[in-house]
Design a protein around this nucleic acid. Sequence first.
DNA 1: ATGAAAGCGCTAACAC
DNA 2: GTGTTAGCGCTTTCAT
Lengths: 355, 355
Amino acid sequence: MKKSTTLKNIANQVDVSVSTISRVLNGKSKHYRISEETQQLILNAAKELNYSPNQLARGLRLKRTNTLGYITPDISNPFFSNIAKVVEKYARKLGYSIILCDSEENTDIEANSIQLLIDRKIDGLIISPVGQTVDHLKETYNRNIPIVLIDRFFPDFDLPYVASDNYKGALEATSYLIECGHTRIAYIQGLKNTSPNNERVKGFKDAHRNFGIEFDDSLIVGNSFGEENGYIEMKLLVKRNNKPSAVFAGSNLISLGALKALAEENLKVPDDISMISFDDQPYSRFLATPMTTVSQQGSQIGQLATKILIDLIETNKQFEPKGILLPTTLIKRNSVRIIEDAEITGNGKANSILS
Amino acid sequence: MKKSTTLKNIANQVDVSVSTISRVLNGKSKHYRISEETQQLILNAAKELNYSPNQLARGLRLKRTNTLGYITPDISNPFFSNIAKVVEKYARKLGYSIILCDSEENTDIEANSIQLLIDRKIDGLIISPVGQTVDHLKETYNRNIPIVLIDRFFPDFDLPYVASDNYKGALEATSYLIECGHTRIAYIQGLKNTSPNNERVKGFKDAHRNFGIEFDDSLIVGNSFGEENGYIEMKLLVKRNNKPSAVFAGSNLISLGALKALAEENLKVPDDISMISFDDQPYSRFLATPMTTVSQQGSQIGQLATKILIDLIETNKQFEPKGILLPTTLIKRNSVRIIEDAEITGNGKANSILS
DNA sequence: ATGAAAGCGCTAACAC
DNA sequence: GTGTTAGCGCTTTCAT
């Protein structure tokens, strides 16, 4: 078994001290006016011995690891795995590695992960928090570890975040549904008391209000961004007496579950029921009924967050408390039935595109 | 800013040496017969000061970091993000963290990532290698860092791996196509010279051979597991003079790209062309034409690989060279047209299920 | 039953 | 221009 080369090994070969070697290898040759000759000797020996520094020792000494934590509630959700991809890529380009933690939408796991990352001395944290409580996040804050939130944030705790403008997204989508003549619309929500969910519910309600449509609180159902939730709630919705004519699914996974329920009940979109879903996915346009969706800019969100975090780290500011909201896009396809006698008011102010 | 508590801090508060504290906190109290009293003192102080060990220092000393590397060619591909999820989860349960690296199907990035992970002193590596060359993987091997391959392996270099039985999967799927009366079948392959691709192409060819069907080498096209490849190749395929009646897509992303091409050309599945795809996805059954797919056991692959790796680490074996092949399942849906005058021979030996 | 000291591999302050 | 030394926070051998 080959052991790693250390500075000491090089020092033995070339006859200089480890400090000089460290200096040369860290590009400080001119600053210390190290002779061309020793420089070459050292560089050659390092290459020959295939030296590369032990990052544990370096981190311990420097208090800097070039490592970021990324905590996500569900890495298998394409919305988050897309973000993970750009976070990793962008971080890598700037010299950082990523420790990945999946919180499974569980605050306890999330809190443990944060502690674990602190113990591993990450330089910064990117997190899509479960989002229902914030206390455990303050631990990084207390320790001066910069943090940037993705997707979910806390209105009453000032941490930098990058997210979609979920309020507008939901407002626009719901308005579109209403313009198409729907007045009895259900919303299958994600995890309650998280910012995206709160914002979306708010947009959903405000759209009704704008159009002067009363709505039934019992039509806001569910409590998870997962597929199961979509399945269960759709099952229940279609069995109601006064069933909705349209359903707004709060995430891509929810709509998948909802589709499964509809298949079982032999109900067709949009003839039997209209649908619209948050999160556009590559497959959305190829579904049996191409799905009208609210598209989020996942890649931009991830890249921006990473950029902000690394800036924070490298400028030694803990943070500039600011939130960034990226616009969503309503992509109209065929999953919403236009109810004939609807008065299309054109009040939806939708920046929609077709695809 | 709150600084982390160290053993020294505790030592100052309780009046004992750091060694004793380390012993107590590592559960070695009985072995060193440390008095109940000091034990309690130490435990209380540790809790009070909210101590948790610096893993950099610990790792440096112990030569053990409880950290695994996971290198994947594309974390945004649901096949891999599903694997990442179970790898992370299972590793976490056993006390390990994951450093995530995305190689972007690029051997140079992969090689850099491996070096980076070695420098970070990972205890073991799980990797879905790009797979075309193996040399840079030997570096972990040389350093006695256990490694387990996922999805792709090297027939001529003995590293443990967990993968699907891609040969049988492709054989079964192609046989099914042939049984349905197709004789002119294209295969849009993934990255050439990778084990899954080699195996699938072999299965594809052998199916033809088994049925005594000659086939046209020019019908094996493409060279990437990505969406773009599926798009481009399908575009070209349908414009050929003697175009295939069925297309076998080598991955979920390839089939998505192929679907895009067909949409542009206004061609319908299966009326104009039949399709079958590797990788079942939750949306596969909800597509305009529910897609017949070869389903892989992603979660099992990930969990098995993680278990094997951690066993290797904890038993100090470098590895037991063995490969595990998990069966695939052909899920028949509606994307394959049954050509009327086909003689269904039933020779496919398919363990297929319906969904 | 506990402490002192060495050392993991690195960098930087302080020599000269 | 380069070496010596200290120290990051931890575990462990060797003392007592």
